[in-house]
Amino acid sequence: MELIVASAIGTLTAGGVYLMLRLRTFPVILGLALLSYAVNVFIFASGRLAIDMSPILSKYGDASYTDPLPQALVLTAIVISFGMTAVLVMIGLGAFLEAETDRIDVASDEAETNETKDGAA
């Protein structure tokens, strides 16, 4: 199970980094979403992987339990990354409507040359 979880995190991260390097709004948003999935699973796994154990300390007997803290942490992380993705989509949309290009690596100094390029396209 460790191998499956670890390779899943690795694949998600690799895909996320690749998509982020595309430097276009839509792939970058997808890439950041993949990265945040990867990190959520990673945090979840940081409390050790356990099967059939509840995250609650049992007061009856010696039933072992799994670490509840990473589950609380990952909940916070999911909420934050979901909200942040929504903000990113809105700002990306705003930038696209303003600039009529979805590239995100335009340096402000190149703005003039880009204007002519946009005009041609």
């Binding site: 982020m20 930038a95 600039a99 995100i104 690596d105 703005a111």
Partner: peptide, 12 residues
Amino acid sequence: RERMQAGLQYVV
């Protein structure tokens, strides 16, 4: 326009 694009970079 430029502020939105710079803002997008900053957010990413």
